[in-house]
């Protein structure tokens, strides 16, 4: 069993790359954790596609106002400077390139930057929400994910086999083992867990890992 980062640690690592003053959309579920690990000396404004900029932490149980929710339909609170807007404005922020970064979950990411994160196939009721919109327009689209599925299969692949959310849209991947950029149709390894050899990492990755200069140690705090 290879040592790996927890979801909280992956979220922490992704948060370290969000710049002060950034407008950020976090996908539903696991990516929402990123907000909790922003460095204290930086302020990001979080966007939720149902029509709020500048939301804060979830309220305590009993304090919810169910007209004030995020895209995952969880209750939220507002920070000073927050704003409400309708859906057409909200998705203008998304597609119009006004968000600095979107951080999303993934079933599969291809070395071409293709992302599959909305459907695991024809079974069940199809539901897409804002997934296909969010992959377009943010200046940086990053994915946070386990490096492999719970069955040990690579999630970083040459070509996605699951239904696509978007083509050539992902630029960076933070996994439970590594930090990887997508450059010109290649996975370029930037950081990896120090206890994991390059060959180990490659064997759990479904496409060739490239390097471009030094590979740094991926170190995160205990969380």
């Amino acid at each position: 069993m290879t040592e790996k980062l927890s979801n909280a640690q992956i979220a922490w690592r992704a948060a370290q790359d969000i710049k002060d003053g950034a407008y950020v959309n976090l996908g539903i579920g696991f990516p929402e954790m990123v907000a909790g690990y922003m460095p204290e000396d930086r302020e990001a404004v979080f966007h939720t596609e149902n029509g709020v900029l500048g939301f804060g932490r979830n309220p305590a149980p009993g304090d919810e106002d169910w007209d004030l929710i995020n895209a995952g339909k969880k209750a939220i609170t507002l920070r000073p400077g927050a704003a409400f807007f309708h859906h057409a404005d909200s998705f203008a922020m998304v597609r119009g390139g006004h968000l600095d970064v979107a951080i999303l979950g993934a079933y599969q990411v291809a070395q071409t930057g293709d992302l599959a994160n909305w459907s695991t196939g024809p079974k069940g009721v199809p539901a897409v929400g804002g997934a296909m919109d969010l992959v377009h327009g943010a200046k940086r689209v990053a994915v946070i994910t386990d490096h492999v599925t719970k069955h040990g299969e690579p999630k970083l692949v040459e070509a996605c086999t699951l239904p696509l959310t978007g083509v050539g849209c992902v630029t960076k991947v933070y996994t439970s083992f590594a930090v990887i950029d997508i450059v010109d149709g290649h996975f370029v390894l930037r950081e990896k867990l120090p206890g994991l050899s390059f060959d180990d990492l490659q064997s759990q990755t479904g496409a060739t890992l490239h390097t471009d200069g030094d590979v740094a140690d991926l170190t995160v705090p205990e969380l």
Binding site: E49, H86, H87, A88, S90, F91, V94, R95, V125, P126, A127, V128, G129, G130, A131, M132, D133
Partner: peptide, 15 residues
């Protein structure tokens, strides 16, 4: 019957 539309596309089609 279901017509599935991405959320932002749904908003913009209505707009």
């Amino acid at each position: 019957e279901l017509e599935l539309v991405p959320q932002g596309t749904l908003a913009e089609r209505i707009r």
